[in-house]
Design a protein around this nucleic acid. Structure first.
Length: 235
DNA sequence: AAAACGATCGGAGAGTTCCA
DNA sequence: TGGAACTCTCCGATCGTTTT
């Protein structure tokens, strides 16, 4: 996936009010840009780090620019949580995610489950269905570990319950962690941040929900899911 | 085709509880 | 009674989907 808009580099100053980030350009001007990330951005919102913002060139937007990438100590982090779904879809279609090869159709945002949810990707061949939930992972740990979530996510836990429901109904469910830190080596749940999510993830895995993690490669302006990394569910 | 809606959740500020 | 600690409510921008 190519970021199909002009990219501008600046310094990350702060993130606030959920949707806002202030970026200082080389000129010294400070832009308030849209921050499309609903997590805490712990370990990403680093004052003084390089920030790449895209220019929507859309005059109707209140915030013309969108925060895309934070670059810190030679590591790039994709903080735009709207990208992973498309990236995973692209990776499935190009055969990069081997576990999900071979389905005839792929649909996005299909309503399903008992709790008024929408699945990120629904793969199917005839009557056979595979429910794929995608999560963006940016929380750093030690020694190349990356973790999820970066704040309590009751919605994430709900999605896990829904995936288990689909398993019970005889379908296949796969949770794909899109690891958006370029130096990441291994994935683990962040039980210290959201113990309920971590427990539910392990339970879901035991019930047959497949859990896989793929790392993003970032060579601006191109983002590409490339490498599978290990998932560690031993708490 | 345009408008409305739902999903996303931290943070601010208001309101409440509790204890010394 | 003061204030710390906690809970609750609501705002905000964008995008994709659904409704009108």
């Amino acid at each position: 996936m190519k970021i199909n808009r002009p990219l501008v580099r600046g310094r990350f100053l702060r993130r606030y009010k959920r949707f806002f980030a202030d970026i200082e350009l080389d000129s010294g001007d400070v832009l308030t840009v849209h921050c499309p990330n609903s997590g805490s951005m712990k370990g990403c919102a680093i004052e003084g780090a390089w920030a790449w913002i895209s220019d929507s060139e859309n005059p109707k937007r209140k915030l013309r620019y969108t925060l895309e990438i934070i670059e810190h100590k030679d590591e790039k982090i994709c903080v735009n949580t709207q990208r992973p779904n498309g990236l995973v879809e692209e990776a499935i279609m190009s055969g990069v995610i081997q576990e999900l090869n071979g389905y005839e159709t792929i649909k996005r945002e299909v309503r399903y489950g008992d709790e008024n949810s929408r699945i990120d990707l629904l793969l199917s061949t005839g009557d056979s269905m595979c429910f794929v939930e995608v999560k963006n992972v940016t929380l750093p740990g030690e020694n190349g570990l990356v973790r999820f979530p970066d704040s309590v996510t009751t919605r994430g836990t709900k999605h896990l319950r829904e995936l288990m429901t689909m398993i019970k109904a005889g379908h296949r469910s796969v949770l794909v962690f899109c690891v958006s830190r370029t130096e990441a080596q291994e994935f683990a749940p962040a039980a210290d941040i959201d113990p309920i999510y971590a427990e539910t993830l392990i339970k879901a895995h035991k019930m047959g929900v497949e859990v896989i993690a793929y790392r993003l490669e970032i060579e601006l302006p191109t983002l590409k899911i490339k490498t599978r990394i290990p998932v560690n569910l031993d708490l």
